[in-house]
Amino acid sequence: MELILSIVIGVLYTVGVFFLLRRSMIRIILGVLFLGNATNLLIFVASGVTPDAQPSFLSSSTEAASSNMADPMPQALILTAIVISFGVVAYLLTLLRKTHEITGEEDMDQLK
């Protein structure tokens, strides 16, 4: 499981960096999205994948096993990171549209 996820993370980072280095602005936004998702997965994998663990917060009726509980922390971190990248992408799209409207350009090298 870890191996597959690590490879996926590697691929996502590669694709993200590749897109980020393009000149077209929409690709840069895609690159940011890929990098953000790669990082979220990295948080998930780095803190340990526990496939058959129990959720840590259960309703009081369920019987809790004290061992083998999933770590709730990475999920909180990832949720926060997702919300932040939501805001950032919204900003980037706005910037893209504004750039396009003012300059009519999409190519970064033409922006001089």
């Binding site: 799209l93 706005t94 549209r97 504004k98 409207e101 003012i102």
Partner: peptide, 17 residues
Amino acid sequence: GVMVMVILLLMEDRKWS
């Protein structure tokens, strides 16, 4: 509020400036 605003403003086919 934020999500609908962002999407609708991006969708709007009017000039901003």
